[in-house]
């Protein structure tokens, strides 16, 4: 991670901003004048809507790899991911859950859910609005209930799986951004004035470095990366002209 060059285009530092960061594990921010909170787990909470948004759960990844004759990975990632989601739902008390696409690693992953996992998901969905946004890995699930959508607009914000460079005020996933700070690599949110790209929430997910060319047309300085992990940490993102890789 590198600071921006000189900060020429940046507004002066707001002191309240830093005190806010140091106060808790979460990272509150605004997008399209809406107050949102990034959680260390990689979810966001939108208190005004009591909405919890998670992206790229990739449930069923290990089974998909096994089907294709690849490695037999520890088959526990669904349990691990649902445990995390369950905890976030309990902690925020969210009444609307929005899964931002690639919730399942492929279409068969939904049908291959074990009965236990299916019951668990059903229990989480009970009494809550639940929106499945379609991803590139999965068309929206068919048998689990909830609402299936290509994208969802709520107030000034649009939720879609892949960010659309022509649009603003959107929240998306797909790229699994990650960044490094003090040798530690962490999944991260990328946030600029008009857009939020979410980290992958699923347990078995890798990522694209925050300086990847894929983000150049999407994220415009001044922008920050919000690292997940034991705490949310905001970092300035390098400008597009920086060629150094953020690792």
């Amino acid at each position: 991670m590198r600071p921006l060059n000189g900060g020429k285009h940046s507004p002066p530092l707001a002191r309240s901003h830093l005190t806010r960061q140091n106060k808790g594990m979460n990272y509150p921010f605004t997008l399209a004048a809406q107050s949102l909170t990034a959680l260390p787990s990689g979810a966001i909470h939108w208190p005004a809507q009591n909405l919890l948004c998670v992206s790229d759960l990739h449930l069923g990844k290990s089974l998909r790899m096994a089907r294709r004759g690849g490695s037999l990975l520890p088959p526990y990632e669904v349990t691990a991911t649902l445990t995390k989601l369950d905890a976030d739902i309990t902690a925020t008390g969210a009444k609307h859950i929005l899964c931002l696409g690639d919730s399942f690693d492929d279409a068969q992953a939904e049908t291959d859910l074990t009965p236990d996992h299916r019951i668990w998901l059903t229990r989480l969905m009970a009494g809550r609005a639940w929106t499945w946004i379609a991803g590139n890995h999965d068309p929206a699930p068919l048998t689990l209930g909830g609402t299936n959508k290509n994208e969802a607009t709520i107030g000034p914000l649009t939720f879609r799986h892949i960010a659309d460079p022509a649009q603003i005020h959107d929240i998306s996933g797909h790229y699994h951004p990650k960044a490094r700070l003090k040798t530690q690599s962490r999944p991260c949110f990328l946030l600029d004035k008009s857009r939020l790209i979410m980290p992958a929430y699923g347990t078995y997910t890798g990522g694209l470095w925050a300086d990847d060319a894929a983000f150049k047309t999407l994220i415009t300085p001044p922008a920050i990366a919000i690292l997940t992990g034991s705490q949310c940490l905001a970092l300035p993102l390098t400008s597009g002209s920086q060629t150094r890789r953020l690792r």
């Binding site: 600071p3 921010f29 004035k193």
Partner: peptide, 16 residues
């Protein structure tokens, strides 16, 4: 993180 933010003079990129 705080140092980098301060050095960059970056505050919340989308103030209300």
């Amino acid at each position: 993180a705080a140092r980098l933010m301060a050095a960059a003079g970056v505050t919340d990129p989308s103030p209300p």
